[in-house]
Each structure stands twice: as structure tokens, then as C-alpha cells.
Design a protein around this nucleic acid. Structure first.
Lengths: 143, 143
DNA sequence: ACAATCTTTGCAACTGAGTGTCATCTGGCG
DNA sequence: CGCCAGATGACACTCAGTTGCAAAGATTGT
């Protein structure tokens, strides 16, 4: 097994370790998250879950997202003007560029920005607990 | 008059120029904004307005904030886990550090971060329309 | 395998922030 | 002044998410 940059969380193990029951709806939801390349919102996860098991309710999706967020297994992003969107944790920290036309999310990372943020907080006498850096942009048309 | 860094907008003039009527409720609201050092939300503005004229409705506060935002006279910030908070436009661009214990907002500015953001967007083939940088922190206890 | 226990579920009712509707009111021009 | 489009307050509504509750389901002990 080579060096793996994006280590996906083993949701079932995390839930079990935290003493949280693995139920049918939760299994369906974490399976969706595992095979998920984008940043869906709760309703979208609900729709994908309903294709597997139409008895799953939206409440359960919301509740499960909250549980997983609490375990640190997923991250919640409240991008502008829309519902929260989720992504699995476990990869490297990164920030987001949101295409304002399509809603597409592009991940990026800048150690230099992180560093400057820390310098700023330091200078103001604060410890950063977390931050939010979102660029809202439009694809540059070349030509 | 020396070089003035924080030029407060003359709301009445802006409204008049945009052909928007200056009514009693609007006058009260913009007066509150003018003499306002913090980042209140709509409900807080409503409360402060009610002290001057208790007949002003919350709807009108929301509507007025929307109008002023449209004119570029105020900025709306949707910080984590709370309603939108407002500040008057006209000062220099800046970002925010939010004290997660008190909700206090500290403004800061970093040309270097701005520059790096542009570099990143450039590299990804995007033009930045706007961005959001928020640091959520806790006061470092010295000692 | 079974009951006991305690969590989780689906449903529906609720909350909070903000928007839309509409009859009434009013700012500002003529 | 009188007019009247635009603004207001009241209230119904939306949207995202949360909560209360009775019924269903997952673990544990035996």
C-alpha cells in the first residue's frame, strides 16, 4: 500500500467506537458519502439515499449528518445563499473556490495563507479555532 | 479636513440619488447605522429602532437592509451559526476575526492574503467576484 | 434464540430567519 | 394643498433544520 494522501474515514468503525448504533439508514448514508466526489447538501443526500431505500426520512439524514460531524467524520460548509453542503473528512485541510454560475466547488490549499492567518490572529491576541476561506468566482473565458 | 480613512456613507443622499423615498422608518434605521460601531443583526437593529419609534416593524428593517445592501451602502455578513450581521460600507475592505465566546468581531486586513487569493484563482482559471475570510478564535490568555 | 433495554426511526409539528401579499398610509411633486 | 406610486405594518408563508413522540430496531445478557 503506497502513501495514501486522501484517507477516507471508515465510518462504521468510527460509529462503533463511539458507541453509536449502525442502523440500516446510517449504513446507506455513509455508503453514499464514501462513494461521493462532490459536495452534496442534505436534500441531495436524501435523494441519493431514497434510491437505495425509499423509507429513509430527511430527518434521519439531518440527524446522521450531525452525528458524523460531531465525530469529525465529515465537514459541513455553509456556502453563500444555500443550504449546508458536506464532504468527508480525512483528506488534507483545504479551502474552497465556488463557481458562482454552476455551484461547482474546487478545493485548494495554501500554506502561505494559513501561515498569514496565524500571524494575524497571533498579533490580535487570539488562537484560531477554525477558519473559513471561500473564493466566489467565475470561470475566466480564455479568448 | 485631514485624510479620512473611514468615510461613512451619506445614506440619505444615496437613497435620494437612487430615487428611493426617505421615510420615517428609513431615517431611523440609517441613523442607527451611522452611529454604530459594531456588527448588529436585523433583530438588534429592530430593537434599537424600536427605542426611537416603536411602530417600526421588523419587516421594514429587513426590507431596508436589503435596499441599502443593493445600493452598496452596507455589507451583509453571514457568520457561522447566526443571522446575517451588517456593517456600513465605505471603509477599506477588510476581513473578520470572530470571537467565538463573545461574538465580538475584529476587523483586519492583509494585502498579502488578498494577493495570494488572486494568484490561486488565476491559477485555477477563475476571476474572483468576491470572497469570504473569517477567522473564528478565542482570546489567548496571557499567563 | 429470546427478552429486556435503550437507541433510533419516521412522522408531523415546530423554530428561526427571512420573504411575499395586501390593504392602508405617506413622502414629495405639481 | 391634493394626488398617487412607492412604502409600511400585519400576517401568512417559505425554507432549512430541529424536536417530540410512539413505534421499530439494534445490542446485551442469558
Amino acid at each position: 500500500m503506497a502513501t495514501q494522501k486522501n484517507q477516507k474515514p471508515d465510518y462504521e468503525k468510527m460509529l462503533r467506537k463511539a458507541g453509536i448504533r449502525i442502523t440500516r439508514p446510517r449504513r446507506v448514508i455513509v455508503e453514499i458519502l464514501t462513494g461521493c466526489e462532490d459536495h452534496p447538501d442534505a436534500l441531495e443526500i436524501f435523494r441519493r439515499a431514497a434510491e437505495v431505500d425509499s423509507s429513509i426520512s430527511l430527518s434521519t439524514v439531518y440527524r446522521t449528518m450531525k452525528v458524523l460531524e460531531g465525530l469529525g467524520a465529515i465537514h459541513r460548509h455553509a456556502f453563500e445563499g444555500g443550504p449546508s453542503r458536506f464532504e468527508q473528512a480525512g483528506g488534507e485541510h483545504h479551502d474552497h473556490l465556488i463557481d458562482i454560475d454552476t455551484g461547482d466547488v474546487i478545493e485548494f490549499k495554501s500554506d502561505r495563507i494559513e501561515h498569514l492567518q496565524n500571524e494575524i490572529a497571533e498579533a490580535l491576541g487570539y488562537d484560531i479555532i477554525h477558519h473559513r476561506l471561500e473564493l466566489y468566482g467565475r470561470k475566466r473565458k480564455t479568448g
